[in-house]
């Protein structure tokens, strides 16, 4: 039945598009390359302005932002975790050793089940990129960031973002992702939220309710 449906639907599409000659791969490529893209693709901010804008946008979302130097990351993570009571916190495989504090609360992810993940109160990860204009963090399933469930179930996400990974706008982020487009990728723009009740924005529905970003500058 299904194989038949496939040929029927494809046949309908071809018949419907009979005013448009069927393009071969080269024509499709040429047509796609000729699409207009007159929107902003380049940034115009200095690095300092870019980081300020990201911080500003993250604050808009109610996220905490702390600027740290590279050698301060481990201490900053330890301090933030302590502030939150050193509750069980997940750490992905491949999280950089130089960022990892001596802290009993941290546990390396190890194919935990969903219910086991639910016992962690927090998670600490890196990020592939951050987008200043939209205040977005881009997470992928790579070393130091880990699988998607890890940053989903715990209620607190501590994310370490390096200044060199901060881009100004969305097209710049996509340019960075061009080499790894098939990895599971999640754009996180502030804590989970809903406006389904009278358009009142409520922070924290199902995803992590608390987001803290360590912005590593220098």
């Amino acid at each position: 039945m299904n194989a038949d449906a496939r040929s029927v639907v494809l046949g309908r599409i071809r018949a419907a598009l009979n005013d448009h000659p069927q393009a071969d791969a080269a024509q499709l490529n040429a047509e796609w390359l000729a699409l207009p893209r007159d929107y902003n693709q380049q940034g115009h901010l200095t690095e300092a302005e870019r980081l300020d804008l990201l911080e500003d946008r993250l604050h808009d979302y109610g996220a905490e932002v702390t600027r740290v130097a590279g050698h301060e990351v481990a201490a900053a993570i330890a301090a933030v975790l302590a502030m939150r009571g050193n509750r069980p916190t997940l750490m992905p495989q491949g999280f950089p050793a130089e960022w990892t504090p001596e802290n009993a609360a941290l546990t390396m992810d190890d194919t935990f089940s969903t219910r086991e993940l639910d016992r962690f109160q927090g998670v600490v990860t890196g990020a592939t990129a951050a987008i200043a204009e939209t205040g977005s963090l881009v997470l992928q399933d790579v070393a130091g960031q880990g699988r998607r469930a890890g940053t989903l179930i715990p209620d607190f996400h501590l994310c370490v973002v390096r200044a060199e990974d901060v881009v100004e706008n969305v097209p710049q982020a996509f340019a960075r992702l061009a080499a790894t487009p098939t990895l599971p990728t999640t754009f996180v723009s502030g804590p989970s939220a809903t406006a389904d009740i009278e358009m009142t924005r409520i922070k924290g529905v199902h995803g992590p309710r608390f987001l803290h970003v360590l912005l590593v500058d220098g």
Partner: peptide, 14 residues
Amino acid sequence: ERMNPYNSIWTGVR
């Protein structure tokens, strides 16, 4: 919103 809180992109099975 400038960006909605979550965009998920995945490809087949990982």
